[in-house]
Amino acid sequence: MTAAEAMTQSAAATEPPQAIDVRDLVAEYHLKGRGRMGRRTRTVQAVAGVDLTVPRGRTLGLVGETGCGKTTLGRVLVNLVRPAGGEVTVGGIDVAAARGTELRRLRRTVQLVFQDPYSSLNPKLSVRALLTEPLTVHGLHPGRREERVAELLELVGLDPTHAGRFPHQFSGGQRQRIGIARALAVEPRILVLDEPVSALDVSVQAGVINLLEDLQAELGLSYLFIAHDLSVVRQISHEVAVMYLGRIVERGPAEALYDRPAHPYTKALLSAVPVPDPRIQRTRKRIVLDGDVPSPLAPPSGCRFRTRCWKATDICATTAPPQTLVSTQPATVGDSESAHQVACHHPEPPTLIGACHACHA
């Protein structure tokens, strides 16, 4: 048995079934400025009462437009942003209450992979120094750190003999692999991947996605995969959650959500995904949303999507829609991995969206 396999089995025996468990999460930013009455502070609620779970060894894709709160949610999970309300448990650790030894354990349990692989790496440090630093901070592998650096580079598909090079001497895809290797250095069980391939060419994206899938299978990792590219999210995710203006509007298994979207916003997003088949592409109906995303400083009452929704009625303006279960496969409703939920007063009927189904054929 290899060291990686032993580590995986040992951690699996003590981990809870849910790698990430978020209940009614609220995250806020406070903006200072000047008004007619002097200085004032305004509050932006970036995340507004979000519930989500990521089962151990699975991937949840989190999608939505820029500014919807995806990155803030990810930063809460790694304790870079303090929650203003709700409960956040990562690897069995209460994030808000973590202090001292517990906080140190949290740092090893969950790691963040950043969007820009160049800005996230110190250009003055060699790859060897970048990968050795977290080992030194956490006191890991004393006496064999050079060997551990070589193991990490091999794990992400890079040549260990290049450990003496600096970040600018690598391509964008290679730099992202170095970022992943640095995250894996402390042997985490959970990765928060914040737009990890958006800065890469399409051909390079596929290689990084394949690497992440291989690492998940080999190490038993759990992922929160944050992205705006729906095609990429479908490729890697077991489940998908759609976020709009701080709230989850729809969540379900990837196949069910992509083939049978129930929320108008999800349907609009999927209508913009290009289809490689010209015949289908010509017959598709593109849904263009009116207006821009409202300001999080003054979100709409009731349903936050109602100002851009073609199905909005009076109830949408007064009452926030609750999460309701949508069943496209009645025999598996009780299976948590098959639960398809939507927050909408007027959900779309569960009919197959043929164009969306074809986008991955």
Rank of each mutant, 00 (worst) to 15 (best):
T2R: 08
A13I: 04
T14M: 11
A19W: 02
D21T: 02
E28H: 14
Y29N: 11
Y29Q: 10
G38Y: 10
G38L: 12
R39C: 02
T41G: 04
V44W: 05
Q45L: 01
Q45R: 13
A46Q: 03
A46T: 04
V50F: 01
D51E: 12
T53P: 03
R56P: 02
G57K: 00
L62H: 06
L73E: 03
V81D: 06
G85N: 11
G85D: 15
E87T: 15
V88E: 03
V88A: 14
T89Y: 02
A97Y: 04
A97W: 02
A98P: 02
A98S: 11
R99S: 11
R104I: 09
Q115T: 07
S126F: 03
L131Y: 01
V137M: 09
G139Q: 07
R144Q: 15
R145N: 07
R145M: 09
E146Q: 14
R148E: 15
L152I: 11
E154V: 13
G157S: 10
G164I: 04
G164W: 09
R165Y: 07
P167Y: 06
F170V: 04
F170C: 05
R177Q: 10
G179L: 00
L184W: 01
E187P: 01
P188M: 08
R189Y: 01
V192M: 05
L193G: 03
E195V: 09
V197C: 07
A199P: 03
L200P: 00
L200H: 07
D201N: 04
V202M: 11
V202G: 03
S203D: 12
V204E: 12
V204L: 08
Q205F: 08
G207Y: 01
V208E: 13
L215K: 07
L215S: 10
E218M: 02
L219P: 01
G220H: 00
I226M: 08
A227Q: 05
H228F: 09
S231V: 06
V233H: 08
R234T: 08
R234D: 12
Q235V: 07
H238M: 10
E239C: 06
A241F: 04
A241I: 03
V242T: 04
L245N: 08
G246P: 00
R251C: 08
A254R: 04
A254D: 09
L257H: 13
D259S: 11
P261R: 10
Y265W: 06
T266Q: 13
A268V: 11
L269G: 03
V273Y: 07
V273Q: 11
P276D: 14
P278C: 12
Q281D: 12
T283V: 09
R286V: 15
V288K: 02
L289H: 00
L289A: 04
D290V: 02
D292T: 09
V293C: 05
V293D: 06
P300V: 05
R306M: 02
W310T: 13
I315D: 10
A317E: 15
A320V: 13
L325F: 01
V326Q: 12
S327P: 04
G334C: 06
G334D: 14
S336I: 15
S338A: 14
A339E: 15
Q341S: 13
V342P: 00
A343C: 09
A343Q: 03
E348I: 13
P349K: 13
C359E: 12
H360T: 09
H360C: 01
A361F: 02
